[in-house]
Design a protein around this nucleic acid. Sequence first.
DNA 1: TGGGTGACCATAG
DNA 2: ACTATGGCCACCC
Length: 112
Amino acid sequence: MEKHNDFFQLVFQVVRLIPKGRVTNYGAIAKYLGAARSSRMVGWAMNAAHAQKKKVPAHRVVNRNGELTGKHHFETPFLMQELLEKEGVKVVKDKIKNFDKHFWDPLKELEM
DNA sequence: TGGGTGACCATAG
DNA sequence: ACTATGGCCACCC
């Protein structure tokens, strides 16, 4: 009965595996959990990320464009960028520079 | 049961 | 750069 659980926790768990200074996108997480789930669900799950007891590095999850589309859901709109830059990820105009360099794909990193 | 929503993605123009 | 459209699927009325 407690296992209603939800892929919410699965999403959070994957996000927690993202190394510092690396980022991924919603679609990659969705694929890793199973293509059946759409990336929208990942974003939806992240909505509850801040409410988790265990912190979720949601700032390491951006959209496929490398844009900080979720920054508005943080405590402050600047927090997401600050956290990323603190980890060595440069952000200009809400977009990550060298996104492909920082990109961390759970399918590749975890399957290998 | 059904409609609306969403921190998305891909394609088209 | 922009809007529009269709798909995706869990969640909440």
